[in-house]
Every structure is written in C-alpha cells, then in structure tokens.
Design a protein around this nucleic acid. Structure first.
Length: 561
DNA sequence: GCAGAGGGCGCC
DNA sequence: AAAAGGCGCCCTCTGC
C-alpha cells in the first residue's frame, strides 16, 4: 500500500493508493505527522512524497524512520529523460511543479518556453499539492508499467532509497572531533589570526614569498599580481598552477607552494569551516541526491565530498565506538568489465587487483601503465602516454573498450547514452548544436570546423565517461541501499529498545563509513561485504566480476588509508 | 555593491 | 600549453 503525503502550511495531506487507485484520505496537523507515520509504518507501507529533503526530514526530526519511499522529484527526473521511456505519454507530458530545476531540458521545456502562456518561469513557487503528487505518482507507476523495464524500475527504486539515506546522513552527521581538528590546524597553520586573516604560518610564508620576489606588499592570493611578480623576477610563467610552478628552480617556489597548500586548508577547512559545519562534534553537510548528471551524489555546503586527507584524523569514532570504513576497489573498471560482458577483463580482475591482472595477461608492462591506460580509456585520453596505449587496450579487451568507444561516438554525434540501469545522459546544449550546424555550412571555414570538432570530442568524452561513472554510481546506490536494509534488520532490536546501533554516517562515491559500537564492528564489516555482493548480483546477475572491498575497522578515518 | 566567470585545488 | 570524466568551494577579478 502506498501513502502519498504532501505538506501544505501547517497541514499534512495524505492519500492512500491501492492497486493503482486512490482510496482513503487524511489531513492532520503537520506536527502530528511523525506519530501518525510511525503507526502506519508498522503495517509495512510505501511512502510517496515530492521531496525527501522536505517530508522525510520532518519525520526524522520527529524521531521516525521509514523503510520504503518514493521520491517523486528524483524519479521524475530519471523517467523524463530516460531513453527507455521516451515513447510514453509520461515523457511527452507537460512540465510540472515536480521538475527539478534544470532537469527538463528536452523538447518539452523548449516547447513550453515558446508558448507565451506557459513559460518555465510561470511554474508555481509553492510546493506541489497533494493532488499533483497523487497524479504524478500514478503517472510514474503507469509509465514504469508501460516501459516494463526491470532495470529502470530498479534505478528509480535505488534513487529513492538513496534519498532516504541522504536525509538520514543529514540527521546523524559524521562523528567529528573538533579538538583534533583544531590541533591539526594549529600544527599546520600556526596561531589563528583574531579577525580571520592569515594565520601565523601563512603570514611567515607570505613574507618569504615577498622577499624572494622583491615584491613587498604582494598578495600571493592574486593570480595576476603573482604572475607579474614572477615575471619581474625573470620567471616566465603563463599560469600559477602547481604543476607549472613545480618545474621551476627558484627560492620563491618552496614557500609559494607551501603557502598555497596552507591557504587551501585555511579557507576550505579551517576555523571558519569548523564553526559553520561542525556542531556538537558532528559534521553535518547537506547531501544532495541526484545532484550530478551521472547519478553521483553532490553536497551543498561543507564540501562533504572533498574532505581532504589532511584533516581526516578528525573524523573520529566516539569512545567505545569504531568506524567501519569500506571502499570498493577499482570500481569503475570492474563496472565496465561487467556491463560490457568482457570476460577477459573480468578474468584480469578475478585475482583481486585488476590493474595487475592486465599485466599478468601480458597486455601492459607495468601496473602503473595499466592503471593509466584504464583511466585513460574511461576518461577519453587521446594523447600522451595513456592515449598511446588505447590501441593496445582495444586489441586486448575489445568488448570493454568497444563499449566506451561507442558511447564516445554517440556523444560526438549528439546522441544520448544510457547507463546499465537506464539513466540517460542529457542532450547537448543548443550552443553545441549551433557549433555543429555552423561547421556544416559551405565555406564555414577552418575555425568553425575546429570549434565544432572540439565541441563534439568534448561531448564524446563526457558521454564516454557517463556510462561508466553512472553505472558505478548505480552499483554504489544498490550497495548503500542493501547495507541500510541489512543494518536495519540486524539491529532492529537495538533500535526498538532505544539502545545504540550502527549508523551509516558517510558516503563518497565508492566508499562508506559506518559508525558502530565497538562490539558490532565485525558484524558491520561483514554486512558491508554482503551488501557489495548483493549489489553485484542485483546489477549484473551471474556475470563473473567481483567487487572486492577494502574494509578497515578504525578509530579515525586517517587510519583507513 | 553584487553576480558571475575564472583560476586554482580538494575529492572520487 | 597541457593531457582525460564528474563535482564544490574559496578567492580574485570584471562588468554592470
């Protein structure tokens, strides 16, 4: 049974849906929703709402977790773009209050903009009503039935589970030792400046830079000023990027590189960051499911996905607890082997280290080269060492490399591509088509042709990577979703008794952290492994690719390296 | 004074 | 001069 929920001012509206038909309705004060939801949850329902960040957050604040839910906005974003659903009435329907900003980029949006009566800017600014949510849910279910694609159904399900997990992560937070973080900052940056200016160590380095360049008053944070000062000192640089500076032999370089590194730490993860994003020794970023076109998550504020290694020692289990840190080894090449059905590459992965496997199969001379070549194949390297190795890889693994090559060619033509479960890439922009059209005109000129070819190749690299990165994101979502269920089932007793239980606290593309009472650490580690096996099975059935994990039980995140 | 672009760099 | 995908965030600079 489905329960569709929409929040209006102060009121929660609910409609029951059974076998595709709306039934009983309720309206209750918003404050009563969590309690009411808890009573329904016992009966095993599926919740349906526009936006987990809105409705589920309310439930979680009220202490209520749910097992199943549909996030209408996220499912809509997938279905509206899915190539598999392109012929359905749903795909051709009008824009809606449930469209994520920027996601309805196909012909529907263009048509709406041409019609002066209904532009995208006329969309209602309030959240969708219960009737809109109900209609959307029924339309989505109808669409999925019509398409009859179990993978697409799985993708929608996994995305919705991800939305629940993201809210749970938001609520729980990452255990974070402010004391450790402050100690690290002081060790690296020195005494902080009272008004948030440069801390002591950066001030010293700044003075050394000015001295070495004979440039008193130089602001090393200003790229134009820095380039000018470097040139005055006889150093011909075009940019001030690390890789370019590293090649120069001059007394200014060591302090400048050191300054850069500390400046990054200070601005991105310094005292101001600590004050903004860490409260009561929990780092609380805002996780954004569907924030990346490929299906990866994004985060808003706090830079949750860029937590630098420098400060990972501050991610620390509470006393008597542990962190179970698990990451999927070489996830993307393994996903590529599986989705392309490349049994030779799968065999190379079987011994544990896929890159070493390429060496052992006699394809490439060293692990380092194998890694570079594989990354190059997935990212679209055309030149340099990785580019030169592409023909070697193509010969050895025609199925795997053929898959990414085909995705690149599709993108260069302006076609859309899809992941294993059917997430479909966005179409190229109007600007992209303009460039291609311009190059087609007789006498277009070399410059126009170059620009068009460049844009086509750029988009081809995007679609090439999209199929692999997106499918890896699907594997990770299934992994995470399965882990959530195993933890909930295994520790249901603790939860109902109000006793401490393991909690998922962090997710980073191919890596999870579970914060657990120490005595459950081994059980959790096995659950994480079991979930990885389940994810591989769910996506690729019996295809013989393992997804091995590196699992560490540690007190702080830095110990997991 | 503010918004957006770009440089630079952290993560995968 | 970079080369090869996806992000977010900070700073500075530029244009309105």
């Amino acid at each position: 049974m489905d329960l569709v929920v929409a929040l209006a001012d102060g009121v929660a509206h609910i409609v029951q849906v059974r076998e595709g038909a709306p039934g009983e309705r309720w309206s209750l004060p918003r404050a009563e929703l969590p309690g009411w939801a808890a009573s329904q949850e016992v009966g095993g329902v599926r919740w349906v709402w526009a936006d987990s960040a809105e409705v589920y957050a309310v439930l979680l604040r009220g202490g209520v977790r749910v097992r199943h839910a549909v996030d209408l906005r996220l499912v809509r974003a997938i279905l509206r773009r899915a190539a598999a659903a392109a012929d359905t009435a749903y795909a051709g329907g009008p824009v809606s209050a449930l469209d994520l900003p920027g996601t309805d980029v196909g012909h529907h949006a263009a048509a709406a903009q041409e019609d002066p009566g209904t532009t995208l800017f006329d969309l209602p600014s309030t959240g969708p009503t219960i009737e809109e949510c109900l209609a959307e849910h029924l339309a989505q279910q109808e669409c999925l039935t019509q398409v009859g694609d179990s993978r697409l159904r799985l993708l929608c399900h996994a995305e919705s589970v991800g939305a629940l997990i993201a809210q749970e992560l938001n609520q729980v937070g990452v255990p974070f030792s402010s004391a450790t973080h402050e100690r690290l900052l002081r060790e690296l940056l020195g005494e902080p400046h009272a008004q948030g200016g440069r801390p002591a160590r950066m001030t010293e380095l700044c003075a050394e830079i000015r001295e070495a360049l004979a440039a008193p008053g130089l602001n090393p944070d200003s790229a134009p000023d820095l380039i000018a000062a470097l040139r005055r000192a006889g150093l011909e640089v075009a940019t001030t990027r690390q890789w370019e500076l590293e090649r120069i032999d001059h007394p200014v370089i060591p302090p400048l590189l050191a300054y850069r590194k500390l400046s990054r730490l200070h601005t991105a993860n310094g005292w101001a960051w600590l004050a903004s994003w860490v409260q009561d020794d929990r780092f609380r970023p805002d996780w954004v499911v569907g924030g990346v076109v490929t299906g990866r998550w994004a985060s808003r504020g706090g830079g949750a996905l860029q937590l630098p290694r420098q400060i990972r020692a501050a991610v620390r289990a509470e006393p008597g607890w542990r962190l179970v840190v698990a990451d999927a080894a070489q996830l993307e090449p393994r996903v590529l082997a599986a989705m392309s059905g490349d049994e030779v590459m799968a065999r190379a992965a079987a011994a544990g280290d896929l890159y070493q496997g390429l060496v052992d199969q006699g394809v490439l001379a060293s692990r380092q080269l194998a890694k570079m070549a594989m990354l190059g194949a997935m990212y679209g390297a055309t030149s340099g060492q990785a580019g030169a190795l592409m023909p070697v890889l193509r010969r050895a693994y025609p199925r795997a490399i053929g898959l990414v090559d085909a995705a690149a060619q599709a993108g260069e033509r302006g076609d859309q591509v899809r992941t294993w479960l059917g997430r479909t890439s966005p179409p190229p922009s109007p600007r992209w088509h303009e460039l291609q059209d311009a190059a087609q005109h007789p006498g277009a000129g070399d410059a126009a042709e170059r620009r068009a070819r460049q844009a086509a190749r750029d988009w081809g690299r995007f679609t090439r990577n999209f199929v692999v990165q997106g499918t890896a994101a699907e594997w990770a979502l299934c992994w995470l979703g399965h882990l959530r269920r195993v933890l909930d089932d295994t520790f249901a007793g603790q939860a109902s008794a109000g006793a401490p239980r393991p909690e998922l606290v962090y997710f980073l593309h191919d890596e999870v952290i579970v914060h657990t009472p120490q005595q459950y650490a081994d059980v959790v580690a096995e659950a994480v492994r079991e979930a990885a096996r389940a994810a591989g099975q769910l996506l690729f059935g019996g295809f013989p690719v393992e997804f091995p994990l590196d699992v560490a039980v540690v007190e702080s995140y830095d110990q997991a390296d």
